[in-house]
Design a protein around this nucleic acid. Sequence first.
DNA 1: TCCGCTATGATTAGTGG
DNA 2: ACCACTAATCATAGCGG
Lengths: 170, 170
Amino acid sequence: MTRKKIQIKKIDKTTARQVTFSKRRRGLFKKAFELSTLCDADIALIVFSATGKLFEYASSSMQQVIERHNLHSENLGKMGQPSLELQLENSTFYTMLSKEVEEKTLELRKIKGEVLHGMDIEELQKLEKVLEVGLSRVLETKGERFLEEITVLERKGAQLMAENQRLKQV
Amino acid sequence: MTRKKIQIKKIDKTTARQVTFSKRRRGLFKKAFELSTLCDADIALIVFSATGKLFEYASSSMQQVIERHNLHSENLGKMGQPSLELQLENSTFYTMLSKEVEEKTLELRKIKGEVLHGMDIEELQKLEKVLEVGLSRVLETKGERFLEEITVLERKGAQLMAENQRLKQV
DNA sequence: TCCGCTATGATTAGTGG
DNA sequence: ACCACTAATCATAGCGG
C-alpha cells in the first residue's frame, strides 16, 4: 500500500481524485489549524473543489483575514466599491500601525539580544547604554522595594515584641 | 530528535515558535499546492505571522478566489450593508493593532526603566533577568565586532608594509 | 461514496554546527 | 540566523469491505 510516491500532477481517475481530494483536504485543514495554534498565526484557507463546492477555514474570522489581506495588497492595487478616500485613509492608518508594531517588536528583540547580527559597534554601544540604564534603574527600584519590605517587617516585629512584653506582664 | 509528539497549543519559546512557524508554513503551502494540482481545486491560503508579516498562496488569482468566496458566503449568510460590515471589521482590527502597539510600548518603557513604580519584586527580578541576558549578548557581539575590525586593520597594515617595501626597492 | 487498514513516504521536533 | 541531520510522528496511496 502506498506502494510508491506519486507525482504531483492532476490525477486522471475521477474516483481516485475525489478520494484523494477528501483525504488531503482534511490533512491540509488540520495543518492550517495546527500552524495557527502553535505559532499564533492568523490564517485563512479557502478551497473550491473541482465541482465548485466550498470548504473554508479561518483562525479568526474569514472576513477579517480577507480584509486584512486586502489592506496589505490594495495599497498597491485596485479597490472595489466604497469611498476611495476612506479606503485610502484606512490603508495608510493600517500601514502606520503595522509599521509601528513591527518596529517595536524589532526593538524589543534587539534589546533582548535576539537579533544582533546586522549591527555595527556604534549601534551595539547605544544598545548597551540603554540596557545599562534600564538595569541600574531596575536594581535601584528593587533596592527600594527591599527597603520598604524590611521597614514593614521591622515595624511588625516591633509591634510583636511590644505585644509579647505586654503579655508577659500579665 | 522529535522525541515526543507535541501538543497543539501556542509554543512558549519565541525562537522555537519562529522556527516551527517557518518549517510548518512551508509544509502547509506545499500541501496546498499539491492539493490544488492533484485534484484540480481552486485554493487560496493567507497566513499572517504573529508579527504581522503576510504570506499567501493562490492557485489562480487571490482576488478571484476571494470574490468567489464572497459570492458563496453572501448567498448563504446574508449581510445587509456590506460597507457597514466592512467598517466594523476594520475598526475591530484597528483596535487589535492599537492594543498591540500599546502593549509593546509599555514593555519597552518598563525595560528602559521608565515605569517601574507599580511593580513588585518578582516582576522586577524578571525584568532584571531580561536586561542581564540582553546586555551579556550585546557585549558578546560587540567583542566579535572588535575582533573583526582588528582583523581588517591588520590586513591593511600588512598590505601597506608590502607596498612600502616594493617602493623602497625601486 | 465512505469507512477502515497499513506499508510507505513525508513532515517535522529537537539537536548540533 | 540558517542548514543539515535523524528519529519519531504523521499523512496517505492503494486496497478491501
